[in-house]
Design a protein around this nucleic acid. Structure first.
Lengths: 113, 113
DNA sequence: TGAATATATTCGCTTATCCATATATACAGT
DNA sequence: ACTGTATATATGGATAAGCGAATATATTCA
């Protein structure tokens, strides 16, 4: 994971909105992100695909849903940067509104590591 | 300072190379960055201007040199993210080479806060 | 099997980003 | 004033990034 590649991925508002929610809420399915962020499903999916291809998030299917979470193999420095980003996001829009709007729409099973 | 704007600024290799050196070495003049990073002076200047306009770095003139440093008004979360970036940069190129190649070419006076 | 739900991908377009080159500005020393 | 050094900016062109709309795929349930 190259630092500039990582930060370029983080430096898009839609992707950062997804990541901030993943940091704060844990594993989420696409429809929960769409619901909280209020952007179109294809837009969210496209940005999640970039994060997935870049190794920032992992995805797993569970029934009809696909759950995303911060990648297990994310380096410590990258995870720390995301936590800082989430801190900064608390005070600014649209991130704060996303977190407030968030609601569970599907329960991930804990059965998968 | 909006998180996505900040991370977009960080997500360019040239700018991140400058920032990693500023985190590690403190206040630096442009010619030291050009010397360590080995990119053209206009290229470095242009990226520093973006960082300056974005409030990430402060600049002060001292004689014929202009010294840059992390902005005094950088929020804690942004400063923490930069420190994480510098951690990540230690293990990867071209950042490690920049730091190794770095040498002082001008001494900033400590007289200015 | 067929319909409904969830998610992913492709396409054409627009805009933003980055670059190299050339040039401008500011200061220092003679 | 003139020269050299340090730094900044403007210009035009190439490439990349992001978007909406349409469509494709996968799963569930009846």
């Amino acid at each position: 994971m190259e630092p500039d590649t990582f930060f370029k991925l983080i430096g898009d508002q839609t992707r950062l909105r997804c990541l901030v929610l993943l940091v704060a809420k844990g594993e989420l399915c696409v429809c929960e992100l769409v619901d909280a962020i209020r952007e179109s499903q294809p837009k969210i999916s496209r940005h999640l695909a970039l994060l997935r291809d870049g190794g920032v998030v992992d995805a797993r299917r569970q029934g009809q849903w696909i759950f995303y979470r911060l990648s297990d193999s994310l380096p410590d420095w990258a995870r720390a940067a995301l936590i800082s980003a989430e801190q900064g996001a608390k005070a600014s829009s649209p991130y704060a509104g996303d977190a407030k709007r968030f609601r569970r729409l599907a329960e991930p099973s804990d059965l998968v590591a």
